[in-house]
């Protein structure tokens, strides 16, 4: 033990200072700016029911995005999430035809999600396959099974009590989905930022070998993350199916890209190792507000996708261009 007491300070910058200079703060400013711009652009924007409707644009995707954020921070990715929704929804639809009630339907939806996540997780952690390829494969496989079952048909006839998960309101304009979104956000924020598990996720994303050499069970953590992503896709499947009231095999097509966009926009490094849940929450609102605002201006959905795509590249490119310009 050293005799001279030479205390190393815990931190040089306070956590508050770090937060103020963070990506999340910048993103929050963007969100506020969009909110203000929208309220000027359309008289219909600042209406409680309209705003409440707008949340449906992102709540289901955001639920998946939280789990996806952890997965991407750990250095993996799951592109099969939208196909898991399709398969879970198809399974629920088939169960409806057999007369299964609402509780059973929810269990089936979540169960299929978890199973799909486990399948991805096993292929990645047990067989050591790259997750991007595995999940491009399961993306085709899961949705493919839906197509085999349904073809060009649809499942309908969901019980009225089931539709509450997608259409119900808890209080005034606050929908069940929005409450669920908020609860899940808090759970994931705590899981990532306040637990041993979350710490292991960051360590793995920064240096999986180093984490393994430090006694972290890397494969177990990654497997759990795939399970969670599958589970959240199952939750989203329940909400979306309940909201739409029907299942087609093309349900939620392209969502995987929107979910990944949301995560990256939220400041999660696609290379792994860094990111926060609050960032993803703000990114969800940004994407929801952009979609809603442009919708009020009668801009078609496909054009919104240009904005989302440009946002995705722009938010990463602009800071880099700025620092290159300053370096010159």
């Amino acid at each position: 033990m050293s005799t001279t007491e030479r205390l190393i300070p815990d931190r040089l910058r306070s956590p508050m200072e770090q937060k103020l200079k963070s990506w999340e703060t910048l993103l929050l400013l963007v969100a506020i700016a969009i909110f203000v711009a929208n309220s000027f652009a359309s008289p219909y924007f600042l209406n409680a029911w309209n705003l409440s409707d707008a949340t449906f644009n992102f709540t289901e995707k955001a639920m998946i995005a939280f789990a996806m954020a952890l997965l991407i921070i750990s250095g993996e990715i799951d592109l099969s999430v939208a196909s898991i929704i399709a398969l879970a929804s198809t399974a629920m639809g088939a169960a409806v035809q057999m007369g299964v009630g609402t509780p059973g339907l929810v269990l089936i939806g979540l169960g299929v999600g978890v199973l799909c996540g486990a399948f991805n997780g096993l292929l990645v952690t047990r067989m050591g396959l790259p997750s991007i390829v595995v999940t491009i494969g399961t993306m085709s496989l899961f949705r493919g099974i839906s197509f085999i079952v349904l073809g060009d048909q649809a499942f309908r006839g969901y019980p009225a009590s089931f539709s509450w998960f997608g259409q119900g309101y808890v209080w005034w304009v606050i929908s069940f989905e929005f409450v669920l979104f908020a609860i899940i956000a808090v759970i994931y924020a705590v899981l990532l930022h306040k637990t041993n598990f979350g710490r292991a996720v960051y360590a793995i994303g920064n240096n999986a070998t180093g984490a393994m050499f430090s006694g972290i069970r890397v494969n177990r953590v990654k497997f759990i993350l795939f399970l969670l992503t599958g589970l959240m896709s199952g939750v989203a499947a329940v909400c979306l199916t309940a909201r739409l009231g029907s299942t087609r095999p093309s349900i939620a097509t392209g969502w995987e890209l929107e979910v990944v966009t949301m995560v990256v926009l939220g400041g999660v490094s696609i290379l792994g190792g860094s990111g926060t849940i609050i960032g993803v929450v703000i990114a969800a609102f940004v994407m929801g507000l952009v979609t809603f605002g442009l919708g009020l201006l009668n801009v078609p959905g496909i054009v919104m996708s240009i904005v989302i795509g440009a946002l995705l590249i722009g938010v990463i490119a602009l800071p880099r261009l700025w620092s290159m310009w300053r370096a010159d």
């Binding site: 696609i270 078609p300 240009i306 795509g309 440009a310 995705l312 590249i313």
Partner: peptide, 27 residues
């Protein structure tokens, strides 16, 4: 260019340009 000069991960770049290209067709 985005991958080379700005070193943005290719998956992010092409995810973005994919939606931008599609949207441009509509425009």
């Amino acid at each position: 260019i985005l991958v080379w000069k700005l070193q943005i991960p290719p998956i992010v770049v092409t995810l973005g340009t994919m939606t931008i290209f599609r949207g441009t067709i509509f425009l």
